[in-house]
Simulated scan of single mutants.
Amino acid sequence: MTTANRYSFRNATLDDLALLKGWQSTPHVREWWDADEPYDADDLADPRVARWIVSFSGQPFAYMQDYTVHGWDDHHFAHLPTGSRGIDQYIGDPERLGLGHGSAFITLRMQAIFDAGAPVIATDPHPKNARAIAVYAKLGFAPSGPPQETQWGVVLPMVAKNVRGA
């Protein structure tokens, strides 16, 4: 079994809310993720956002979401081409940090998003989150403007273009 085959994504469900709340309460997630607003049934049903539990060798360890950047009238990525998606994620299990899991599972999800036809994938880490910015740069993202204040906080907008679909 290849390493890529050891990662799996499944839709987050109501049964995962306690797991997500637990992950969001850890210091390494709280530093960059707004854990004061846990998900609820309405969030999970929002058709603009695909929410994923990421597992490695069958063990859940991370959360990822991808969303249509055109789902909100005032979204800071609304200027991107039709079909563009945004991504956010975190590794919930602190024992999985610093081992290359983030780069691996983000790459897999990016491939799936590009294969589905997205021309651009956007992400928006906090400008001081050097670890996330370095991972995104390694995966082909580049800043697409200066840091900016959004309804979700201060972000550094970054984009990766689908070069295979071009």
Rank of each mutant, 00 (worst) to 15 (best):
R109D: 02
Y136N: 13
W52N: 10
A62H: 09
F56T: 00
R48S: 11
Q89R: 06
S55F: 04
H76V: 08
A78N: 09
D73I: 00
A45L: 09
R96V: 03
V120I: 15
G71T: 00
V49R: 11
V69L: 13
P60V: 01
G100R: 12
A132D: 04
P94H: 11
G140T: 13
V135N: 00
I53H: 07
H75M: 06
T68K: 05
G102F: 05
K138D: 02
V49S: 04
H76I: 02
I133R: 15
A130N: 13
S103Y: 02
Y136Q: 11
M110A: 12
G86F: 01
T82W: 04
G98H: 07
Q65F: 05
F56H: 13
F56R: 14
H76C: 14
L80R: 14
V69P: 11
L99V: 05
F141G: 03
T123R: 07
P125E: 13
P125Y: 14
D73K: 13
S84Y: 02
I106E: 00
F61S: 08
Q65V: 10
G98A: 07
R48D: 07
S55L: 06
P127V: 14
F141N: 05
F105N: 05
A104D: 08
A104C: 05
D124P: 10
V54W: 05
T68A: 09
T82N: 08
S55T: 02
S103T: 12
H76W: 03
Q59A: 12
G86R: 01
D115S: 13
A104P: 01
S103R: 14
L99P: 01
L108H: 04
R51L: 12
A112H: 04
R48N: 14
S55K: 09
Y136W: 07
L80N: 10
T107W: 04
T107V: 02
T107S: 13
F105M: 08
E95A: 15
F114T: 10
S84D: 07
V49H: 04
A118W: 09
L80I: 02
R85T: 00
A112W: 03
L44G: 00
Q89S: 09
F114R: 10
K128R: 15
H70T: 00
E95F: 06
Q59E: 12
S84A: 15
N129A: 06
L80P: 06
A112D: 10
P47C: 07
G71E: 11
A137Y: 01
F61Q: 12
M110P: 02
I133V: 15
V69R: 13
M64L: 15
P94A: 08
I133N: 06
Y90F: 15
Q111H: 09
G140P: 08
A118R: 12
W52G: 02
P47G: 05
A134Q: 10
G92S: 03
Q111P: 00
W52H: 14
F105S: 06
I121K: 10
I106W: 00
Q89K: 02
A130F: 13
G102N: 10
G102I: 02
L139H: 05
S84R: 10
A78C: 03
H70P: 00
S55G: 05
